[in-house]
Amino acid sequence: MSEHIVDAAGNRHTTAGDEARIVSLVPSITELLFALGLDQQIVGRTGFCVHPRERVRAVPKVGGTKSVRIDAVRALKPTHAIVNIDENERTTVDELRAFVPHIVVTHPLVPEDNRALFALLGAIFDRQQAAQRLTEALNTQLEAAQAHHWPPQRVLYVIWRDPWMTVARDTYISAMLRLVNWHTLPAVDGGAAGAQRYPAFDLSVPWLDGIDRILLSTEPYRFTQSHCDALAQALQAVGKSTGKLTRKHAGKRIELIDGEQVSWYGSRAIEGIGYLRRYASRH
Rank of each mutant, 00 (worst) to 15 (best):
F201I: 06
Y198L: 04
R197V: 07
Q225A: 11
D202C: 08
L203C: 06
P206C: 12
Q196T: 12
S217E: 00
Q225I: 06
W207Q: 05
L215S: 10
L215P: 10
L216M: 07
A232Y: 04
T242Q: 15
D229P: 00
F201Q: 03
I211Q: 04
R197E: 07
P206H: 14
Y221W: 14
Q236T: 14
V205L: 12
D229Q: 12
L231V: 10
C228T: 15
F223H: 09
T224W: 05
K240F: 12
H227W: 00
G239A: 08
P220M: 01
A230I: 04
H227A: 04
E219K: 08
Q196M: 13
E219F: 07
R222Q: 13
A230W: 02
L216Q: 03
A237E: 13
L215C: 08
A234C: 05
L203H: 05
S217Y: 01
I211C: 04
L203F: 06
T224I: 07
R197C: 06
L203Y: 06
A232E: 05
R197F: 15
G239Y: 11
P206K: 14
I214G: 01
S226T: 14
D212S: 09
F201E: 02
T242F: 06
L231T: 08
I214T: 08
H227E: 09
L208I: 09
L203G: 05
A230D: 11
D212T: 10
G239H: 08
A237P: 00
A234G: 01
L231A: 10
L203W: 07
L235Y: 02
F223D: 08
S204N: 10
L231R: 11
S241E: 15
D229E: 13
L203P: 01
R197L: 13
I214H: 02
T242E: 15
Q233A: 15
I211F: 03
C228Y: 08
P199V: 00
A232C: 02
I214A: 02
A234K: 12
D212L: 09
S241H: 11
D212R: 11
F223L: 12
L215W: 12
I211N: 03
T218Q: 10
F201D: 01
G239D: 06
L231H: 06
L231I: 11
T224H: 13
A200T: 11
Y221M: 14
Q236C: 07
D202V: 14
T218M: 10
Q236L: 10
L235K: 07
C228L: 09
Q225K: 10
S241C: 01
Y221G: 04
P220Y: 00
W207F: 02
P220Q: 02
I211W: 03
Q225C: 01
R213T: 14
R222M: 06
D202H: 12
T218N: 11
D202K: 11
S217Q: 03
